[in-house]
Write a protein that binds this DNA or RNA. Sequence first.
DNA 1: TATTGTTATACTCTATAACTATA
DNA 2: TATAGTTATAGAGTATAACAATA
Lengths: 174, 174
Amino acid sequence: MKSGSPARGTSRGASAADSKLKASNGGDTNGAAATPLRFGPLADYVGYALRRAQMSSVTGFLDAMKEVDLRPTQFAVLTLINENPGVRQNDICAALGLQKANFVPLLNELQRRGLAVRKEGVADRRSSALHLTPAGMTLLRRALELHTEWERRILARLGTRGRDQLLVLLNKLL
Amino acid sequence: MKSGSPARGTSRGASAADSKLKASNGGDTNGAAATPLRFGPLADYVGYALRRAQMSSVTGFLDAMKEVDLRPTQFAVLTLINENPGVRQNDICAALGLQKANFVPLLNELQRRGLAVRKEGVADRRSSALHLTPAGMTLLRRALELHTEWERRILARLGTRGRDQLLVLLNKLL
DNA sequence: TATTGTTATACTCTATAACTATA
DNA sequence: TATAGTTATAGAGTATAACAATA
């Protein structure tokens, strides 16, 4: 949960892979109590920055949502069911990139908590039509409020412009 | 691994949480074969975009690195050891946000593969000084080449400017 | 035959507590 | 007493194969 605070090296030229290999530290780092580590090229890797940002994001999400006790995937599923009443499990899985096998216990839990229900599919008796219960709608409404509060804190860091830029850039990576 | 391709709704005004709740779909979604789902506010959530981008990034990383068979954390650890020869395990963990308990089997594997070694700490006999082996340096050099190739594909999508913007924005989220 | 939902299973990642040996 | 490394363990998240009911 609590992660370290790695140093950031911002310099970046047109450097080949070979030039990145040689260690830039004089002697052994050991001995001193807490020498700030050199990150080398790692500091400018998109994948690494993405990883840390995502870890931080999940932590912030869980903290913001602790009143409603929803994890990111549960929140996304409730939102999708609410936006698409009667949707099939398979479509939710395809939309969110989940395995249908993993969706079963996830939905079971939402159903156990009385937030969502499986109804009989009218046209296709293999599939179930998913709906939110009134309690599910109430909880989702509160979750959306909490999520909006959390987003406000993100906006305070990024600015509206930065947030929009970030969304565009992230979606280019898909 | 293979995730779906969610639709994107780009509209965004100053909307309160309450206005996000009501489902925007007329009747039941069920029946049609593959109705594209409505994502509602989910489409513009930073956390959700981050999650999908990170999943995509990890997949791309593993694909790019399959020749050297390194996962993201292993690559980061090798890089940090190379940049900080003699570094202690604890410092690596703090820098990367890993649990020291989880670092043990990770380093064991790198040692088993002959890429890194634990040497005796000179000043403090509790700690071990981590070093890359010659084989580890050779593999890391190749990994850096492969990583540079992968980054080139990312740059093709983002542009140098977009990449730098993305790094700045992601680091603001920490 | 193909698809929906389900069960069983396994592997990775992450988190915590307790132990050892040093300090 | 505090710290570095280790062990054991548990919980999420994610992946595949196989099955029953239905199309």
